[in-house]
Design a binder for these strands. Structure first.
Length: 595
RNA sequence: GGCCCUGUAGCUCAGCUGGAUAGAGCGAGAGUCUUCUAAACUCUAGGUCCUGCGUUCGAGUCGCAGCAGGGUCACCA
């Protein structure tokens, strides 16, 4: 009985096909589906694909296979045939054994990584240090964390890394504006979070810069030229140059302001509940990749133009030529990324490299993979760009110019306030200590936010409607958290459980429904990991919570007088609570014991 | 213009490798708390699955064409 029923079924069906009709079909290729609710049964085989070779009617084929499978498997209590659909009915004892032996385990559905599993490196977040995090970063961070959790739950040895873009012209803009207009402001003196303070000066730069450009244009200078020659831009460029030369003064300012930003980011990461095994800084990696370019030149897969610049010819792959070194020998983004990919591969002995980066960089990663392949790295095809869609607002895209950017910290604050209001309205948590209440509001707020974002397919653009995101009813994080809290309340009251009788208990429809959802957890995690899709896990958790609530609504548990039934139902409760906790944990969402 | 992605209920989204009468939530309407947490449950209304052609016993799902929206085609990252 240890074998999974779906595996048993496909195995038995494969044998029946061979014995009855001489049809060779591997068990893995036999597609079983869940029986639709309106029909009797648990799993359905569609026999149409086999009727031709069997030379019989669909009904006859279904009946013959049904009979053979029933004879072969004691877990199959019966079957029924409707047209070409063969519905298998699974014995209650199977579900009860499943509950007692597997679903009841606290780590049910999770695959523990083996010690020798090759590490998988997931890069996510990767912020610039010139302004605070916004809603777009939130999707990135939540996805990155969750996919890491998901891959780990599927048995991978995951390393989470962050590549902070801590250098470049944008940082210099903030620095310059702070020098000019900052009057020595610090996070301490203003009480502002460091990343917000630096962001403020980035905006300040832009304001004054635009003014300069405007004035130049009014004096008859072409726009292109004005943008290039505005004094502030020239000065920012000079500052970048001084930075690259290691100018002490510039470096000191750079370190000071980046330090403010990191303190701010850490706070936001902390609130979001995300973290990293290793943080890379571009200031330390931006020179990487040059040796790779030399190697590519030696191999003949790259070429040098007359002006000295180095390129990769991708026209054979249907793409263009890609620059890798400028004529002055400096590297570009692609060059760095080639270098950091190799670094990461070496640092961790990684087999797979996963990049959680928005879909506006699809082209970049396509090229990155191709070039790594041309450079002869066998792991190039294991580079995976987890390309996620943009977050849009009800009135369109976020535009910093129009001030429609949703700030990450503000959003979390807002969610926490709402969570507190909602909770106070319900008045169920008055007996909790103030600390416990605060913690509860926090995990409810983040549960709502995370679930709202993670439940949609990562590859798709999504609409972030603030009003809906703080909804706590229906298909939301708090709905699932609430379901968990209710169950835990029952399990606490039940006390210690007695042994489950797996032979003399009859299941009702609702119980069987819950067990079937529980039963599909391992395959859900496997396919979600395969698709890099936390959304599939979110949908699963919702399905499970719904199935449970429906059961809970009209089935007595602690009030049940039949002890065997009562024990079984309590076990079912415990198993659901545990599965909800584990799946929500994959999403990075904490579930409360009470709420 | 080339390439890529998306198009399912009023709104936001599910629909896995093609399979029975396309599903949820929100919103609208109607019920269910002296009983294990009603942040819940139950029911009703709501659909040319963008359009057309094709492949197939069978298409929301696959192919082609078109329409609409988005992204991208930097010596930026």
């Amino acid at each position: 009985m240890a074998l999974n029923i779906t595996d048993s079924l496909t195995g038995a069906i494969a044998r029946a096909l061979k014995d009855l009709y001489g049809v060779e079909q591997s068990p893995a290729s036999i597609a079983l589906q869940d029986t639709r609710r309106d029909f009797r049964g648990d799993y359905t085989l569609v026999v149409f694909p086999y009727v031709k070779q069997a030379r019989k009617s669909p009904e006859a084929v279904a009946a013959e296979i049904g009979e053979a499978v029933k004879a072969a498997l004691p877990e199959v209590a019966g079957y029924n045939v409707i047209k070409g659909f063969l519905n298998f009915e699974i014995a209650d004892s199977y579900w009860l054994h499943f509950l007692a032996e597997r679903a009841g385990q606290s780590d049910y559905g999770l695959v523990h990584p083996t010690a020798d599993a090759a590490p998988v490196v997931v890069e996510y977040s990767s912020p610039n240090t010139n302004k605070p995090l916004h809603l777009g970063h939130i999707r990135n961070n939540l996805l990155g964390w969750s996919v890491s959790q998901l891959l780990a739950a599927a048995g991978a040895n995951v390393k989470k890394v962050n590549l902070v873009n801590d250098r470049g012209i944008h940082i210099c803009k903030s620095m310059l504006a702070w020098l000019r207009y900052g009057n020595g402001e610090t996070p301490e003196s203003t009480g502002m979070k460091g990343d917000h303070l630096v962001g403020k000066y980035y905006v300040e730069f832009d304001k004054h810069y635009k003014e300069e450009v405007k004035q130049l244009m009014e004096s008859g200078v072409e726009e292109e030229q004005a943008k290039r020659e505005a004094p502030l831009m020239v000065e920012a460029q000079q500052m970048l140059k001084r930075w690259e030369e290691g100018d002490k003064e510039v470096r000191a300012l750079w370190e000071k302001m980046n330090g403010w930003v990191y303190a701010g980011f850490d706070e936001t990461y902390d609130r979001l509940g995300v973290g990293f095994d290793k943080v890379y800084y571009e200031s330390q990696t931006y020179l990487l990749g040059k040796e790779l370019v030399q190697k590519g030149l030696d191999m003949g897969v790259l070429f040098r133009k007359e002006d000295g610049s180095v390129w990769c010819d991708l026209t054979g792959d249907g793409l263009d030529q890609k620059l890798l070194l400028r004529k002055d020998g400096t590297s570009v983004y692609m060059t760095q990324d080639l270098g950091t990919a190799l670094l990461r591969h070496k640092d961790f002995g990684a087999e797979r490299l996963i990049y959680v980066v928005g879909n506006e960089q699809d082209y970049h990663f396509k090229v990155l993979k191709l070039i790594l392949g041309k450079l002869g790295f066998p792991w190039a095809d294991k580079v995976y760009h987890l390309s996620y869609g943009m977050v849009e607002l009800p009135n369109g895209k976020m535009k910093s110019r129009e001030g429609t950017v949703v700030d990450a910290d503000d959003l979390i604050d807002e969610m926490e306030r709402t969570a507190e209001e909602m909770s106070r309205e319900h008045g169920k948590n008055d007996e909790l200590s103030p600390e416990e209440q605060k913690h509860l509001y926090h995990i409810l707020a983040l549960g709502a936010l995370k679930y709202f974002i993670l439940k949609v397919d990562p590859t798709k653009n999504m609409l972030f409607n603030p009003a809906e995101s703080i909804d706590f009813n229906g298909n939301t994080g708090p709905f699932i958290q609430y379901t968990h809290a209710r169950i835990r309340s029952i399990v606490r009251k039940a006390g210690s459980a007695s042994a489950l009788d797996t032979e003399h208990v009859a299941l009702n429809e609702k119980e069987r429904g819950v067990l079937k959802v529980l039963h599909s957890l391992p395959e859900t995690i496997a396919s979600a990991a395969n698709a890099y899709s936390p959304a599939m896990v979110a949908n699963y958790a919702y399905e499970l919570a719904k199935a449970f609530n429906s059961f809970y609504q009209d089935t007595p548990i602690l009030r049940e007088e039949n002890q065997q039934l009562k024990t079984m139902r309590i076990s079912l409760c415990a198993a659901v609570a545990s599965a909800l906790k584990n799946t929500m944990n994959i999403l990075g969402i904490e579930v409360p014991e009470r709420m």
